[in-house]
Write a protein that binds this DNA or RNA. Structure first.
Lengths: 205, 205
DNA sequence: CCGCACCGACCGAACGTTCGGTTTACTGGT
DNA sequence: ACCAGTAAACCGAACGTTCGGTCGGTGCGG
């Protein structure tokens, strides 16, 4: 597979800050994240990334700071998408069970909208400081969701015979597992989101 | 963490072929799989494994064939556990919905019984021929399960408003996600298995 | 002729693996 | 009781390769 990455040239339109932007940071990050997901972060060399982008390794370094910075940027993008969900009004007010369903659905949507980035985030193992920070932020989100389930259980809106933390982990485990098999265009995102949320909520009630 | 691996000395009993067996292949595989799961396969060096086992790298090579052989052995163990489920009588006869529930439950049980090995298997990305073979065998198992769901749906025992393949992937995704957070001794395995199966089956009906 | 995108060549370090040689534990012959 | 002989366990050092990253320079549009 020697395919050259699609350059998103910002030229022609004079809007771009630089006169010529053959490889902008965003498109190179796209390429890097794609290859990271195919080969795994540790299994991907900077030469792999450069070749996938269609330039030499040294040219690649002209645009990006380094390997770990790419991972950090990708995790940041995924985490900010998740973080935004937590800040939505529907996640912050109303019955806990409604808030939980909203968070679960929006998580599934964000996962599909930012599929490569979230995929990479979910595979981070915590080897470096960068990865550990990403894992911590993920855990914050999990705790937030677990709190909603616990509240919904004590409200009597979700079944009490399953531990709230366990139920949270299984529900999000189901939603997150989508990254293992979903490929864009194969099935409409709404069908996947609806099915995941419906299955989880019916099981939980 | 400089902990030395527990040596399972096969000596004292004259049964072993060699007179002295300080490090048998099985215990070294245990160590390797543990470290692989902590750091990731590609992120783990043979020196990491040797240190975790408490011997030098060259000594480690005296006992194992190589890095990829360790991965292959671990995947083989996980895959044979899954394969055994498919061969059980309860997986081969009776109503499809009952068979599916049995396969789902036994998968969850096998996952917990062989947690490190299945964890490693589920993270294989297909970089080498060894990994590709493991992925193929996993897909066989998934197809088997999807067939059961499709049959159960056409029997009218599972809801028809969700695509059988999608339902299968989400159900097993939930069960498989257990490897991301379960740690032995933290919670009884029966509670986790029951919760996962109950949530999935109630959602599916 | 400046500045930027780009490249080939290169660096030290770490990788998986191999090798020569030493230690250890146990044998059979005396 | 002793002593070669033996085979496995073990190690330090090194192999060739690949890694993430750097450097000096080239070509070209403005």
């Amino acid at each position: 597979m020697t395919a050259v990455a699609g350059r998103t040239r910002a030229a022609a339109t004079g809007s771009a800050p630089s006169r010529r932007a053959p490889y902008d940071a965003a498109s190179l990050l796209d390429v890097a994240v794609r290859v990271f997901n195919e080969r795994g972060y540790d299994g991907t060399s900077m030469d792999d990334l450069a070749r996938a982008a269609g330039i030499s390794k040294s040219s690649f370094y002209h645009h990006v700071e380094g390997k770990e910075a790419l991972l950090a940027a990708a995790c940041e993008r995924a985490l900010s998408a998740l973080s935004a969900i937590r800040d939505e009004p529907a996640s912050r007010s109303g019955p806990a069970v409604t808030r939980f369903e909203h968070v679960l659905r929006r998580t599934a949507e964000a996962l599909l909208a930012e599929l490569p980035y979230v995929t990479l985030l979910l595979r981070v193992r915590g080897n470096t400081a960068t990865e550990k920070r990403a894992l911590d932020r993920r855990r914050d989100f999990d705790r937030f969701a677990a709190g909603l389930v616990a509240q919904a259980v004590s409200d009597g809106d979700l079944r009490a015979d399953i531990d709230p933390l366990l139920a949270t982990r299984l529900s999000f485990g189901m939603v997150n597992s989508v990254v293992e098999w979903y490929r864009p265009g194969r099935a409409p995102t709404t069908e996947v989101v609806d099915a995941a949320v419906e299955l989880a909520m019916r099981g939980l009630r």
